[in-house]
Measured scan of single mutants.
Amino acid sequence: GSLMYASIFGNVSAIIQRLYSGTARYHTQMLRVREFIRFHQIPNPLRQRLEEYFQHAWSYTNGIDMNAVLKGFPECLQADICLHLNRSLLQHCKPFRGATKGCLRALAMKFKTTHAPPGDTLVHAGDLLTALYFISRGSIEILRGDVVVAILGKNDIFGEPLNLYARPGKSNGDVRALTYCDLHKIHRDDLLEVLDMYPEFSDHFWSSLEITFNLRDTNMIPGSPGSTELEGGFSRQRKRKLSFRRRTDKDTEQPGEVSALGPGRAGAGPSSRGRPGGPWGESPSSGPSSPESSEDEGPGRSSSPLRLVPFSSPRPPGEPPGGEPLMEDCEKSSDTCNPLSGAFSGVSNIFSFWGDSRGRQYQELPRCPAPTPSLLNIPLSSPGRRPRGDVESRLDALQRQLNRLETRLSADMATVLQLLQRQMTLVPPAYSAVTTPGPGPTSTSPLLPVSPLPTLTLDSLSQVSQFMACEELPPGAPELPQEGPTRRLSLPGQLGALTSQPLHRHGSDPGS
């Protein structure tokens, strides 16, 4: 009898404990919600809404976190579960008819179910419309201010047509639940991603989709105040780019002037030289400038040598048109050559190039014969006009050509200096018209024969001689050997007369 009593008592207590286990969990969670309300000092109306929603959600799901349970299964099984949970929507909604099984599984994985109690606001006026909503159960109302403009029910759709707008718009009203509602919502990016994977279904979906109420604000059109608020930074940046392009296009129409201050000032006329910023005076940081632009901040801005204009002085008759350009485009679109090309026009420029290279940067340069637009006047290309890779490749080509020119210049200078040193070592320090008596009659020769300089066969020296023939050397430049009979510069000019005159010897006659 005691054994029977113990078994009955144990079973009854276990049954009672299981009955009250759900209630215990409910009270535990309710205590957490109330502690949250007390800690954050939530006001009474919002506090009442929180408690009511918790009670309804507990009775609806029995305190089970559906998302946590669903995430515990593998992905393939999750797709089947989501397809079952959203079967009513996918079967009865017209846009989803005719979709393949794979497309429906992908869509079912992207849908999220939302449960809303009465009085809950789903979308506020001015919120971004980031999702498309399908009503599965219940009814909602749409308000503009305090005026109800629409009441939607089961199988209705609200949001915005995503295929017509590249960016999400703003809501033009509040969406509030009238009863307990079940909503299926899919985010904008998720829907577009699935439709991109199934393009054959995309056309059918957009053609058959009928949005019951379009929440997009109709005033959000390009150029409206609301649109400016939504895309303020983007609009200002776009206007700045367009104004920069218009100014650079105007600059290219004036090829007669070359400016070292950047493309923003290349198009300024002579009357605007004294102004601080020219056409860019209202925004000094709008356009890029070269490193020399920092010198323009000092006094005497109108007389600054940074602004270059072609000189009108005539060229000498024998002067060549100019050196070879550094870039391939210089032959086609440049009416002034790079300062480095002028360094190779003569030997005198070679000796004085490194010492006063900055001073020569603004000297007169030889002109190319074609009066085409200036290379320095070409505006900086924006990322939309020329690819970045093209600019980098041009810079690399320019750097390689500069290296080759520097190597060639160093070799030419070394060769010229070597020839000058050899000339100085071969010439005796001094010569006299009267020579010392020699031991015999073989001493009648006034000077030792001097062998002429070897013929220069280097390509670089031939180019130097060509430049010497075309360029007029300055007075202080050293002379180079030329073709024809060679003669030492330090010898007297009348050596031929010395050989014809008898030598005057000093000596005593033994017979006297």
Score class of each variant (00 low, 15 high):
residue 150 A to F: 01
residue 257 E to D: 08
residue 335 D to Q: 10
residue 171 S to I: 01
residue 150 A to E: 01
residue 170 K to S: 06
residue 253 E to C: 13
residue 405 L to T: 11
residue 358 R to C: 04
residue 224 S to N: 12
residue 343 A to Q: 12
residue 498 L to G: 13
residue 335 D to H: 10
residue 439 P to V: 10
residue 391 V to G: 11
residue 232 G to Y: 11
residue 465 S to A: 11
residue 464 V to E: 12
residue 423 Q to R: 10
residue 473 L to S: 08
residue 506 H to V: 09
residue 249 D to R: 10
residue 359 G to H: 14
residue 289 S to W: 05
residue 167 R to I: 11
residue 184 H to V: 13
residue 235 S to V: 12
residue 168 P to F: 01
residue 302 S to D: 09
residue 442 T to A: 06
residue 288 P to C: 13
residue 383 P to K: 15
residue 332 K to Y: 09
residue 414 A to P: 12
residue 205 F to H: 01
residue 241 K to L: 11
residue 291 P to E: 14
residue 220 M to D: 10
residue 131 A to I: 03
residue 463 Q to S: 08
residue 184 H to W: 04
residue 148 V to K: 05
residue 455 T to P: 08
residue 419 L to Q: 08
residue 316 P to C: 04
residue 338 N to C: 05
residue 215 L to P: 01
residue 474 P to H: 06
residue 392 E to T: 15
residue 308 L to S: 07
residue 341 S to V: 08
residue 378 I to Y: 03
residue 126 G to S: 03
residue 375 L to I: 07
residue 477 A to R: 09
residue 383 P to M: 15
residue 454 P to W: 06
residue 259 S to K: 08
residue 153 G to R: 07
residue 166 A to C: 12
residue 183 L to W: 01
residue 153 G to S: 09
residue 459 D to Q: 13
residue 234 F to P: 10
residue 412 D to Y: 01
residue 328 E to L: 05
residue 474 P to C: 12
residue 133 Y to P: 01
residue 286 S to L: 01
residue 304 S to M: 12
residue 305 P to H: 09
residue 403 N to S: 13
residue 291 P to K: 11
residue 412 D to P: 03
residue 351 F to K: 04
residue 456 L to W: 12
residue 224 S to V: 11
residue 496 G to R: 09
residue 229 E to W: 13
residue 308 L to H: 05
residue 158 F to R: 01
residue 350 I to V: 09
residue 470 C to L: 05
residue 302 S to P: 06
residue 424 M to N: 11
residue 367 R to T: 09
residue 335 D to K: 13
residue 346 G to T: 06
residue 226 G to I: 10
residue 333 S to K: 15
residue 142 I to H: 01
residue 233 G to C: 12
residue 218 T to C: 14
residue 139 S to G: 04
residue 198 Y to V: 02
residue 173 G to H: 12
residue 229 E to K: 08
residue 379 P to I: 03
residue 340 L to Y: 08
residue 453 L to E: 11
residue 234 F to C: 08
residue 377 N to I: 01
residue 327 M to F: 04
residue 501 Q to D: 14
residue 347 V to H: 04
residue 363 Q to G: 10
residue 219 N to H: 08
residue 501 Q to T: 04
residue 289 S to M: 15
residue 316 P to H: 09
residue 347 V to S: 06
residue 361 Q to A: 12
residue 497 A to L: 10
residue 344 F to Q: 11
residue 408 R to A: 06
residue 328 E to G: 06
residue 175 V to G: 02
residue 178 L to H: 06
residue 319 E to I: 13
residue 335 D to I: 09
residue 204 H to I: 08
residue 170 K to L: 10
residue 441 P to W: 08
residue 396 D to W: 13
residue 340 L to I: 14
residue 166 A to N: 04
residue 461 L to W: 01
residue 127 D to A: 03
residue 199 P to Y: 02
residue 303 S to L: 11
residue 218 T to W: 08
residue 433 A to L: 11
residue 186 I to M: 03
residue 505 R to C: 13
residue 126 G to N: 06
residue 450 V to L: 09
residue 261 L to V: 09
residue 165 Y to I: 04
residue 326 L to Y: 05
residue 153 G to L: 04
residue 482 Q to P: 08
residue 440 G to A: 11
residue 308 L to Q: 12
residue 361 Q to D: 13
residue 485 P to A: 03
residue 142 I to P: 01
residue 367 R to V: 09
residue 502 P to F: 11
residue 234 F to R: 11
residue 197 M to K: 10
residue 364 E to I: 08
residue 313 S to D: 08
residue 200 E to C: 04
residue 319 E to N: 14
residue 308 L to C: 12
residue 480 L to I: 08
residue 379 P to N: 05
residue 227 S to M: 10
residue 130 T to R: 06
residue 321 P to D: 04
residue 406 E to L: 07
residue 331 E to L: 12
residue 404 R to S: 04
residue 288 P to W: 05
residue 301 R to D: 10
residue 437 P to N: 13
residue 255 P to Y: 15
residue 240 R to W: 10
residue 145 G to A: 10
residue 442 T to I: 13
residue 285 S to A: 15
residue 126 G to K: 02
residue 255 P to L: 10
residue 369 P to N: 09
residue 395 L to I: 08
residue 195 L to E: 02
residue 133 Y to Q: 03
residue 323 G to Y: 01
residue 174 D to C: 09
residue 322 G to K: 11
residue 435 T to I: 12
residue 254 Q to A: 08
residue 162 L to R: 03
residue 188 R to S: 06
residue 337 C to L: 09
residue 149 V to F: 06
residue 351 F to C: 04
residue 409 L to W: 10
residue 380 L to S: 11
residue 298 G to P: 04
residue 147 V to F: 10
residue 270 P to C: 09
residue 503 L to K: 05
residue 159 G to A: 03
residue 357 S to I: 05
residue 454 P to F: 04
residue 284 P to I: 15
residue 482 Q to N: 13
residue 221 I to Y: 06
residue 411 A to F: 04
residue 144 R to P: 01
residue 496 G to S: 12
residue 270 P to M: 12
residue 206 W to F: 04
residue 195 L to V: 04
residue 394 R to F: 08
residue 360 R to K: 03
residue 328 E to S: 09
residue 177 A to M: 04
residue 315 R to P: 15
residue 395 L to E: 13
residue 281 G to E: 14
residue 421 Q to L: 04
residue 155 N to A: 04
residue 424 M to I: 09
residue 343 A to W: 04
residue 504 H to E: 06
residue 434 V to F: 09
residue 328 E to K: 10
residue 336 T to L: 07
residue 198 Y to G: 03
residue 178 L to A: 11
residue 462 S to P: 08
residue 137 R to S: 12
residue 182 D to F: 08
residue 373 P to S: 08
residue 257 E to R: 08
residue 394 R to P: 12
residue 464 V to G: 10
residue 511 G to K: 05
residue 128 L to F: 09
residue 180 Y to F: 07
residue 147 V to D: 13
residue 216 R to S: 11
residue 385 R to F: 07
residue 332 K to W: 13
residue 177 A to W: 01
residue 265 R to W: 10
residue 262 G to E: 13
residue 205 F to V: 03
residue 187 H to N: 12
residue 246 R to E: 15
residue 152 L to K: 01
residue 480 L to G: 11
residue 434 V to Q: 13
residue 257 E to A: 08
residue 352 S to V: 02
residue 373 P to Y: 09
residue 380 L to M: 11
residue 334 S to R: 12
residue 210 E to T: 10
residue 203 D to S: 11
residue 463 Q to V: 06
residue 140 I to H: 01
residue 505 R to H: 09
residue 173 G to I: 01
residue 433 A to V: 08
residue 456 L to M: 07
residue 420 L to S: 04
residue 497 A to N: 09
residue 141 E to H: 04
residue 388 R to L: 06
residue 446 P to Q: 09
residue 379 P to K: 10
residue 153 G to F: 04
residue 220 M to E: 12
residue 149 V to N: 01
residue 224 S to A: 11
residue 260 A to P: 12
residue 503 L to C: 06
residue 185 K to I: 10
residue 192 L to F: 12
residue 213 F to N: 03
residue 256 G to L: 11
residue 377 N to W: 13
residue 227 S to L: 12
residue 237 Q to I: 11
residue 266 A to Y: 09
residue 399 Q to F: 05
residue 394 R to Y: 05
residue 375 L to Y: 14
residue 431 Y to A: 14
residue 194 V to Q: 01
residue 399 Q to S: 13
residue 130 T to C: 08
residue 315 R to S: 09
residue 143 L to D: 03
residue 421 Q to Y: 09
residue 225 P to E: 11
residue 456 L to G: 10
residue 350 I to C: 08
residue 331 E to S: 08
residue 412 D to A: 03
residue 322 G to Q: 12
residue 361 Q to I: 08
residue 446 P to N: 14
residue 178 L to T: 08
residue 333 S to D: 10
residue 219 N to K: 07
residue 473 L to T: 07
residue 367 R to W: 07
residue 496 G to V: 10
residue 397 A to N: 10
residue 154 K to M: 08
residue 416 V to C: 15
residue 432 S to M: 09
residue 361 Q to M: 06
residue 314 P to M: 07
residue 511 G to V: 15
residue 184 H to F: 07
residue 369 P to G: 06
residue 183 L to Y: 10
residue 297 E to T: 05
residue 328 E to M: 12
residue 445 S to N: 09
residue 132 L to R: 02
residue 464 V to M: 15
residue 161 P to F: 03
residue 473 L to N: 03
residue 375 L to S: 07
residue 362 Y to K: 07
residue 331 E to W: 06
residue 176 R to N: 03
residue 353 F to C: 08
residue 165 Y to V: 07
residue 367 R to Q: 08
residue 415 T to C: 10
residue 202 S to F: 05
residue 245 R to W: 07
residue 327 M to Y: 10
residue 247 R to W: 10
residue 167 R to T: 14
residue 495 L to H: 11
residue 224 S to K: 09
residue 471 E to T: 06
residue 163 N to Y: 09
residue 158 F to M: 05
residue 473 L to A: 06
residue 471 E to Q: 07
residue 251 D to A: 10
residue 141 E to F: 01
residue 279 P to S: 09
residue 140 I to R: 01
residue 503 L to F: 01
residue 283 S to C: 15
residue 438 G to S: 11
residue 469 A to Y: 15
residue 254 Q to Y: 12
residue 252 T to H: 13
residue 150 A to L: 02
residue 181 C to N: 01
residue 304 S to R: 14
residue 333 S to R: 09
residue 332 K to A: 12
residue 166 A to W: 06
residue 238 R to A: 11
residue 289 S to C: 10
residue 419 L to T: 10
residue 169 G to M: 03
residue 361 Q to P: 10
residue 260 A to T: 14
residue 507 G to N: 11
residue 246 R to W: 13
residue 266 A to H: 09
residue 205 F to T: 02
residue 301 R to K: 05
residue 176 R to G: 02
residue 493 G to I: 09
residue 349 N to L: 02
residue 446 P to T: 11
residue 329 D to A: 11
residue 409 L to N: 06
residue 187 H to P: 06
residue 155 N to M: 05
residue 340 L to S: 11
residue 450 V to I: 07
residue 314 P to E: 09
residue 296 D to N: 15
residue 442 T to L: 06
residue 448 L to C: 02
residue 262 G to A: 12
residue 428 P to A: 15
residue 461 L to K: 13
residue 350 I to D: 10
residue 445 S to T: 11
residue 319 E to M: 14
residue 464 V to N: 15
residue 168 P to C: 10
residue 480 L to Q: 07
residue 385 R to G: 09
residue 347 V to L: 04
residue 475 P to T: 07
